[in-house]
Design a protein around this nucleic acid. Structure first.
Lengths: 281, 281
DNA sequence: TATGGATTGGAATTATTATTTCATATTGCC
DNA sequence: GGCAATATGAAATAATAATTCCAATCCATA
């Protein structure tokens, strides 16, 4: 038997959803029940679960076997594991991760360190976001004809995700990068009717700061994501956000910045959609 | 029997702590174990729990009876109920956040949604990383002359951060992208002495899959980060990681993928440094 | 509408697990 | 130190639960 048996709940869930169409009626019935009442599967007995789902115990076992398990019992283990995982509280786990990462035990510790850094950053920002700034930034970006996205080096991944998302949302945007060295010309097209999202953290990439300066002098409003009020980026920005990203092994987590960037993007998309609908009515 | 039987975990806990002093040795032993490992009580069998706690099953039953339950089974129910409770509150919180965002309750909810998605993903991966795969991937990448990084569209931000980090660590690498449309030629240079980090999530960008196929046919080992065992990327990979990223408003969080990618990168850097030092001595 | 294969229901069987029992050990008390 | 009360260990037993098996039914196809 080399069939791939889902050993975690998420995989199991997706496997079930994938096969949903091709399952026989009763099996499908128990499959739906399982996804709707995972706790019951975790705690119940084959007989009690079967009764609640309105099938025979044997059907429940056939369901498990069809998924590659060798019986109901092994299927149930996955549902139990899920409860165990979810149970331990967020803070406890984070503390444990940090401790392990700090005592420096091998490669696993490196991984834990990055996870801890990302979690910390998210924790931090979720309590710190300035809602007024957030609304201002959304308003500003919603009005823009073209949204320019500016970030270099370590912040560049965020910029590329913003550009991807804006594209998906059909919002005109321009990532300021050019393999041909035409950045300056690209910036030249920006006008006060456009807007910029600029991202830079210490040590600030000189190119990013310089381009932000030029573009703000053209009267283009800038929304900045940066790490402190002393940031050179802040002085050019109409609205700016302070994001404190934890780092690990010299590399900064991008999770908080990503979350903020995506929230801005989606909020702008939503606000434009609403405005469009209103205009039509 | 009108003895007061604790029917919720908190009451039970306090009852146990109250009586701790007056309990016989073995009973006290199982009592301590129960409070320290409530999950084990919830899921284990009388025999398995007794063994872990270093007592006889009969002792476990006597413990339950002393607390007023009529047997181990009814004691166990309290521990199971506790897991149910905790878990549902967790789900409720997350569902509430999503619901708020989906019913359009302000922009703040969108932000919270992204933070929640990122946290969930991190939580998820931290318990699920396969350490053997992780070590294999590190070993494989450490040996490589050049590390090629392959990812398109929504996964591209991760690739660009990997490339940045590898550069910082002075590890030769090549991001597979070309404004001049020379991807195929770029791939052509890769040899079996190199390695690839490939990242792709459903719906898999055709270009990424195609390039992974070509490069694997050249005998270049691939480390893949993807979302399920059904991923077309998995079949080309020497080592692959399954990362389940939560999504929000149609955009997948990248936080877990980022953490894994950075951990791989830094671990490779560290392993190379160690190897270099050994060679010198 | 007849036929073969797949699916399902329900009881029989097997396995696992909780509980009880009883012999033995330990403890507190005179 | 001896005796009773209590606690413990280990195995037997009872209970419960999972699995298997086979007959009945359903469903697609010719």
């Amino acid at each position: 038997m080399d069939e791939r048996v889902p050993r975690d709940f998420e995989t199991l869930r997706r496997t079930i959803l994938d096969r949903r169409q091709s399952l026989p009626k009763r099996i499908a019935q128990i499959a739906a029940y399982a996804l709707d009442n995972p706790d019951d599967i975790a705690f119940g007995t084959a007989a009690s679960i079967a009764a609640s789902a309105g099938v025979q115990p044997s059907t429940l076992i056939r369901f498990a076997q069809q998924l590659g398990f060798d019986g109901f019992t092994s299927l149930q283990l996955v549902f139990r594991e899920r409860l165990r995982e979810r149970n331990s509280s967020y803070d406890e786990r984070l503390a444990a991760l940090r401790a392990k990462a700090e005592e420096g035990a091998g490669h696993r510790a490196i991984f834990d360190g990055f996870v801890a850094a990302a979690s910390t950053s998210l924790n931090d920002i979720s309590g710190r976001l300035n809602e007024d700034h957030f609304e201002d930034a959304i308003a500003l970006l919603t009005k823009a004809e073209t949204i320019y996205v500016l970030a270099k080096r370590r912040s560049y991944p965020v910029a590329s995700y913003i550009a991807y998302a804006l594209g998906k949302l059909k919002i005109r945007n321009q990532l300021i990068e050019s393999a041909a060295g035409l950045n300056a010309e690209m910036i030249g097209f920006a006008s006060p009717r456009d807007a910029v999202i600029a991202i830079s953290f210490s040590p600030y990439a000189p190119a990013a700061i310089e381009e932000a300066r030029v573009i703000s002098e053209q009267g283009v409003p800038i929304v900045a994501i940066t790490d402190s009020s002393f940031s050179p980026l802040a002085q050019f920005a109409k609205v700016w956000f302070e994001v404190a990203e934890a780092d690990f092994a010299g590399f900064r987590s991008l999770s908080a910045t990503m979350a903020l960037a995506m929230a801005l993007t989606v909020a702008v998309g939503e606000k434009r959609r609403d405005a469009g609908r209103k205009r039509k009515t």
